[in-house]
Nucleic acid binder design. Sequence first.
DNA 1: AAACGTGCCAGGATCCTTGC
DNA 2: GCAAGGATCCTGGCACGTTT
Length: 489
Amino acid sequence: MVARFLHGLDNIRMSDILPLIYHHRSGYPSINSANSDEQNLLFVTHGSPDEIRNARPYMSTWATRLVAVEVRRQVGRLTKDDPTDPTHHVHLRAATNERSKAHVVTWCDLGNWSLKKLESCYWRRGAGDLAMFITEAAAAPAFEGGVAVVRAQRPHPIIQSSAMASFIISRNRCANGDLAMILGIWHFACKSHVDVKRVYCHLGNYVAATTSRAALNSMTAGSMEELRADVGSALEGGEMPVCLILDNVQEYFEVNEQGIGRQNELKVGTAGTSIVLDECAPGAFDAKDHHDRVAKNERRLLTHDALFDDLDFPHLRRVIPLHWARVLVEFSPHFLPLLNSIAALFRSSPVARRRMREGRKMKGQPLGTNGERSTETQGMERAVKDFENQMGLNPELTKAFLFWIRGDGASYANILRLTKYCAPIGTFPNKVATPEIWHTGATDLNSFLQVYPISHRKGVSLESRLPMTLSTRTQDHRFTRTDLDAFAI
DNA sequence: AAACGTGCCAGGATCCTTGC
DNA sequence: GCAAGGATCCTGGCACGTTT
């Protein structure tokens, strides 16, 4: 009988009875009754609920305790890895030895991370959906029809996710994979002030600075090993797997420690990034094939007329108007909704000729910066040799392949010069250099921002235009059409 | 003259995992 | 549930220019 009722098989169910009890006026003390103080005991978080006599305060207090225990259990479960998602590691070790079984952080872990993913992970895992429900109730600015309203500015789901991530690392400091580790590394990259790191570590936002540094050290060591292994096996398979992007680095170091001959200095060096070559035709970097083609000297046939004949006018007539349409649509906010359909035209046939693979992601590995000056000829030679060595490009194994080097204008010119000088003696063989188009763009923007007045504000003298960061300028300045016209002049 | 600001890191304190 | 050992956290010292 009782079991039937409790299973909800009778006509009258718990959902009929509980609201009646909860809302019954006799279940709540009146202001004149002897236990009127129980009016204040609706959601009591301390003491034993058993001493509450009235039904309504007892029920709500009892439910409060029930929810608290469950939220605690669920957040506790979120401190463990999700068995259904092997790509997400809640525990990222910054360092380890043989004894530990835990996953050591990799660049891939950081690359796969996104706030959006994190949020859906918390809801999806179920282990945390009650906690998400509670934090949403706390964080959402409004509810419409039982659904939380997400504001465009400072959307609460992000705040919820970050709060949840803080709760999780608060429960277990090794459960840092949701947000803490990535923010720790971000603050290292931003060179945040040490005090900022200390304070926000206390707040449970990210791991301690020591841990970020340890993580970076082991990631770098681990990924370099991985790169060398990949490069080795690809070379044995007869393909050149990587290319190199160069840039020069300058950083001013102040010396605060005592020491003979130590002084502030500008450290100059060359930074390199190895990029995995993707979707190349087999043998694309075969040196012999390249030399054979060069020997044929077919370039002599590359005249203006030949180039003109090569132009695909029907295709240009399709593409150029589309570019114009995109510029126009982007110009006016009124037309912005059309942007997606223009993008779709670009992506589909016949305009699209050779699309990149869906979901393709560039794989890059920062190499150790060396102290060579990329503008010096010999410095560049030593720098490239160092990078090749770091990547595991053994000169014996690579002599059959072309090596593609990309960089800013200076690096590009320098590589060309080196190949010319070294051609007769063969010490710098098989290098192909191209300038980076994106690099040119970024540099242009940068120099524009450096020379352009901060504002038209009256009374702002040239001398008072303080150096500011690129992001500050682009955000603060809010270019108008007039600004751009002025720049064009 | 005193205190602050600045980044790094050794090494102790604390917390967590592992293995039983 | 315990002990051992490892990972992480945290503090203070350091040096010296700058600010109060």
